[in-house]
Design a protein around this nucleic acid. Structure first.
Lengths: 144, 144
DNA sequence: AAAATAAAAGACAAATTAATCCTTTATTGT
DNA sequence: ACAATAAAGGATTAATTTGTCTTTTATTTT
């Protein structure tokens, strides 16, 4: 469904969101440990996400990654996926046709449209704030 | 969503189903041409599908690929996806966790379950026969 | 039997994705 | 000012996926 990059990215951002929710900054070491991901690779991903204003970062001692209160409420999962995997999941054809739409559909087009719409809506409506607050209530996991 | 292998495989099988529906066998050259896919690569994919009884093949002159009447009605898209991409789309975690289930869920588990269930049902309920007959009515495309 | 046809099989090659390593830059505390 | 800390950046390697090429096997027609 998503690339490894996107999977690690989502997990990392969710973890940062959780910590940011209680005003904590987290280092790349702490993140990689919390989500059980390759550290250097995760660092690269976070570079992309900071460039795209999904997360913020501060260098040096007491530095680390965090997400400001406003972003916590405005950033949805769809924004993260867009940065890391582009919009292929939403727009791309299930059978890999370059152009596939209502006018010129592949045999599965109308069946896929529905499923993708659901996915899109779910990603667009799920904010980091929702996850960060929800995760305090139930027991959720970011690693095995 | 699917690998290239699976995309080509689905398109190839749908094309073969269409031709088989009017009792025609098709060569790998005809298939690659009809779905605009790399021929040798598509040949490899069809090898896998014949081994797994999704399609049948006959060597030599007047040979080619086809799907018998019974398979046309019993084979669903889910069977093809299972052979080529495995069951990761159904069972795999959206965030890439190795084990993620109702008991030990990732933060998005319950949101993903629904979407994946829809996809699963769609793939399982769509048979080659349905596609082969439906494609005669409407204008559908297998290449650009 | 020989030639032609078409899929099967195996060995490579190219491209993309995933992952690591090393150096540089920014910031802080002593 | 200096040492320590932590992210940013660049170059490289590893693994996987995608794709090609050549040979072999099976079947049919002449």
């Amino acid at each position: 469904m998503f690339s490894k990059t996107c999977e690690y990215g989502l997990r990392a951002v969710i973890f940062i969101a959780l910590e940011s929710n209680v005003d904590k900054k987290v280092s790349i070491t702490a993140i990689a440990d919390a989500i059980e991901s390759p550290q250097a690779f995760t660092a690269k991903i976070l570079q992309q996400l900071t460039k795209n204003k999904i997360v913020q970062s501060i260098k040096g001692p007491n530095g680390g990654f965090f997400i400001d209160d406003k972003s916590l409420k405005t950033v949805a999962l769809s924004n993260i996926v867009a940065v890391l995997d582009g919009d292929a999941i939403y727009t791309g054809c299930g059978l890999g046709l370059h152009q596939c739409n209502d006018k010129k559909p592949c045999p599965l087009h109308f069946k896929f449209v529905e499923i993708r719409e659901n996915l899109k809506k779910m990603l667009e409506s799920t904010t980091l704030f929702e996850l960060a607050t929800d995760m305090n209530l139930k027991e959720y996991f970011l690693k095995n």
